[in-house]
Design a protein around this nucleic acid. Structure first.
Lengths: 213, 213
DNA sequence: GCCCGCGGTGAACGGGCGTACACCGCGGTC
DNA sequence: GACCGCGGTGTACGCCCGTTCACCGCGGGC
């Protein structure tokens, strides 16, 4: 154990869990400036402060670690969707509230969003598939939420899915832009305002399109 | 030289250019299943059939190679935009023609699109910046094209930029989806039809939004 | 209280990595 | 026709890689 004296009261299971967490956090930290596929087991071990072979006590491979990070990251994302649902209607309309929640979560869980954005495009195949699966799940959830807003009750399931897909695409792109604007509040504000206009265009358009066909 | 007898008539410059091309093509081929940052100089050299040190006669580093590939890839993309402008108006409206051209180019230049999609998210910083720069240039070009379609003449530069950004975002996402649907024509057809609906929602929406504010 | 087995250690392996260096044959310039 | 220098070669270096193996201390179930 890394620090036996300071944590002597922990049980075996607790210590294992703590090391596992340290590995996940270390890998996430290293992912900030690289990719999973360019990340070595030894780098992770060094970052965490354990010997390389100890890594195998927790994960079979870097790829398995990646899958665990995907699961963990999407806990953040689901929390985000939940927050949008629960957000205070007093703060303007749905669009403004949604964007506010998105920005807030990207800031708070920056490492997770960065990890997902990178691995979605360049991770190991199994990781990419896991991410795509979660995003699709996300789209379906959003579609059921959309079905409840006034004016779209008669829409077909396909129309809902297509609109949901478009919104998620835009939100993913916006999250990536916000990540890229780190440390430049003016640029971020610009992104937020642009996104608000885009969501309006998109929602108004979908409503009009439906009512006229 | 790799094959001195078969190409003995070439000049020195021609041979150098041929090797350079072989390196670019080899790296692009290897990028199909990995990322630039996980690509070693020795792998590229082996793929091309030269000794590792010979690589330095053409590029300073893998990253420099990447920048050259970005330049090359965006030649394809500009050709695409040009093709949309020149496409036969007899084939339905702008939306259908644009999607048709996109699909066609993704098929024809698959390796380039794959490379850009991967490196945009996970490449070395300089490569990512080069790609983002090119995409922004693309957005500006699209904005000037949009300014010429009927009904948007009075739009502000900012509105045009925002709409253009939204369309490019959607097109990038669509290209990525098409890449992911390789070998499944039915899935690809589904993507195409969804994208068509999305572009309609979006264009109709932006027009209505403008006329009512 | 014994002892199993778990989390962690440390040395060692074979191999791939980037890069430095000395070298070579020949195309192209004078 | 001499010779400069370019594209390409081969060797060699020190380093990091994943994985193996034998080992160890001690928490916890019997």
């Amino acid at each position: 154990m890394p620090e036996p004296s300071a944590f002597s009261s922990e049980s075996r299971g607790e210590r294992k869990e703590r090391t596992r967490r340290a590995i996940l956090d270390g890998a996430l930290a290293l992912s900030d400036e690289s990719t999973l596929v360019a990340l070595s087991l030894r780098q992770v071990a060094k970052e965490v402060g354990i010997v390389p072979t100890a890594f195998y006590r927790h994960f079979d491979s870097i790829e398995a670690l990646g899958l665990a990070l995907v699961d963990e990251s999407f806990v953040s994302l689901r929390a985000m969707l939940r927050d949008v649902r629960r957000s205070d209607p007093a703060f303007g309309d749905i669009i403004d509230r949604s964007i506010r929640v998105l920005v807030e979560h990207v800031h708070r869980e920056r490492a997770h969003f960065l990890f997902i954005a990178r691995e979605r495009a360049a991770g190991p195949p199994a990781v990419r598939e896991a991410i795509e699966e979660q995003i699709e799940l996300f789209e379906r959830e959003l579609a059921t939420d959309l079905a409840r807003i006034p004016g779209v009750e008669p829409w077909s399931a396909r129309d809902l899915r297509v609109l949901s897909n478009l919104i998620v695409t835009l939100m993913v792109a916006t999250a990536e832009r916000i990540l890229g604007a780190a440390g430049r509040p003016d640029a971020e504000q610009q992104i937020v305002e642009d996104t608000r206009v885009q969501l309006r265009m998109l929602l108004i358009g979908s409503l009009n399109w439906k009512s006229s066909s």
